[in-house]
Structures are given as C-alpha cells and as structure tokens.
Design a protein around this nucleic acid. Structure first.
Length: 275
DNA sequence: CTCCAGGAGTATC
DNA sequence: GATACTCATGGA
C-alpha cells in the first residue's frame, strides 16, 4: 500500500478530535483509525506531529486532510480573544482539539439522528444508513459501505427508513432527502440566511441547524446549544442569565464572536468530562 | 418496570 | 412567547 506523511506544525490531537462527538464514521484500526468521510475512506495514524495515512477508497491527499481537520485554523489566535476561565482551562486541557470540516450531507444526516439520542447510538444509526442504503465498495482492507447519496436516499421508502432503527427521526430523514436542498450552496451565504434555509426543513431546529453550519459549512459563528452546553453556559459563562436555549445561544454568539463555534466545541468537551 | 437521551413539531393558553 | 405533550428506540 501507498503510505504518505503529513507534518502538522500546529497543535493537533487526532484522538481527541475524533472522539469529541462532532463526527461519527470512524473506528480504531491497528493503533490508528479508519475514517469514512462521505464517499471517501482512509486509514490514519498520528505520532507526535506526524500524520501517516493511506487511501482505502477515494483520493486522499495532504491538502484534503488539511481541509478536513482544519489544520490551517490558528487555535492560539482564535482563543487569544477569550478570557473566560472555563474556556481558557478547556483550551489548555484539550490541546489540539479541532473542529472537523465534514461533508454537509453526512453532517445533516448525523445530526438529524442526534436529536434526543446519544453518541453511540448516533454512530450506530449513521452506519446502519450506510449499510442498508449506500453502495458497497470492495477494497484491499475489506468491504465498506458508503453513505447513501441524496439521490440514493430519496429512493428509500419511509417504511424502510423506520425499519432502520432511527425511530421518529425517519420522517425527518425522509423529508430532507425528498427536499432536494443543495446544502453546499449554503457555504457561501451569510450565517443567518443559511440558517433560515436549514430551518425550513422539518426536523431541523436551532441546534441541528447550528451543528450543520458549524461542522460542515464553515460558519464558525454558529453556536449549537444542547443540554450539555446549556449547563456549561449557566454554570461557567452566564451564571446570572436565565432564559431559553435560543437566548443563551444568542448571548454566546455575541460574547464569543466570529469563532464562537470553537468555544462551543471546547466547552462541550469540558462539560461532558466534568459536569 | 421506569427514566432518559448533542431536539423539534404541534397544540393551547 | 411560554409551557406541555408527543415522537421511537435502546440502554441504564
């Protein structure tokens, strides 16, 4: 096989980044990881500042990995503007935790599955969608199921989706697939316009929309507020504020600014660890 | 058995 | 605009 190297001259922690609950199609493989991103599949190891990787299916390059793991984001500069002790503590404790720039379609499916669920089950759901409705690829490393494309999922019946074990989320996945919404075009729109479009899809509310915008569409000012972040904000950032999750999200975006999503990801990880 | 989980839609006031 | 109820399923 063809192995390549990528040297990371900025902080990057592959284990932390993968296990931080933003992306679900990965699993341990021989002291490294096997990662599936939309239609691609690759294996990757990290040893200090060196990433070693090889494509399994689809073309994976150093540029692709730099984009996928957002290795060009300057974390020191992004976090230098924030003085909240909890954020500073999380930043020093979780060095190298990065947002992932994942495929928008995969991201939308994942976070539609995420509602009233948990990370292990989201992982199970997204993998089931792939094995049942996606194409299968034979590789030297075994057989892999690709995620169904929007066109492929649009051909799946509502009944088959319910039988895939995604619960009440089936009707929302069905609606998204039938909508024909072109997620990629939302990358170039401003945050509020892009979010309004996402909110027009049944099943996508404030939180899921912000996850899609943050994790796949480069809208780093998005600040998804779930139950964990709600606790984190009330405990650490706005102890005197009361209100709805939407109001806390609004305050958080004002407080953290253009890169609020990075503060969110660290606070989420921190809250999950100690609250 | 009951309760809850990286929520959101709907009805009702 | 707030609040309560509902939606499926699996694990604790």
């Amino acid at each position: 096989m063809d192995f390549h190297h990528l040297r990371t001259d900025t902080a990057f922690d592959l284990d932390l980044t993968l296990s931080s609950g933003q992306f679900f199609r990965w699993k341990p493989y021989k002291s490294g990881y096997l990662i599936q991103d939309a239609q691609k599949c690759f294996i990757i190891w990290q040893r200090n500042s060196d990433l070693e990787y090889t494509s399994v299916c689809g073309k994976v390059s150093s540029q692709y990995l730099t984009d996928f793991f957002r290795l060009d984001d300057d974390l020191e500069q992004i976090f230098s503007r924030w003085n909240d002790s909890s954020v500073r503590k999380a930043f020093s404790r979780y060095k190298g935790l990065r947002l992932i720039r994942q495929d928008p379609w995969e991201c939308a499916l994942s976070f539609l599955c995420s509602m009233a669920s948990n990370i292990p089950r989201i992982t199970q759901n997204i993998n089931t969608l792939a094995t049942r409705f996606g194409a299968s690829t034979q590789t030297p490393y075994g057989s892999f199921s690709r995620l169904p494309t929007p066109e492929q999922l649009a051909e799946v019946s509502l009944e088959d989706l319910y039988n895939a074990g995604v619960g009440f989320r089936a009707k929302y996945l069905y609606g998204l697939a039938k909508s024909g919404l072109h997620l990629e075009s939302l990358r170039d729109e401003d945050y509020k316009t892009a979010k309004a479009t996402l909110l027009s899809i049944k099943g996508i509310g404030d939180k899921v929309a912000d996850c899609i915008l943050l994790f796949s569409l480069d809208h780093l000012e998005a600040f998804p507020v779930d139950t964990w972040i709600m606790q984190a904000l009330q405990t650490w950032i706005f102890p005197d504020l009361s209100g709805s999750p939407a109001q806390f999200a609004e305050q958080a975006r004002k407080h953290f600014g253009a890169f609020a999503g990075y503060a969110q990801q660290y606070l989420f990880h921190h809250a999950r660890a100690i609250l």
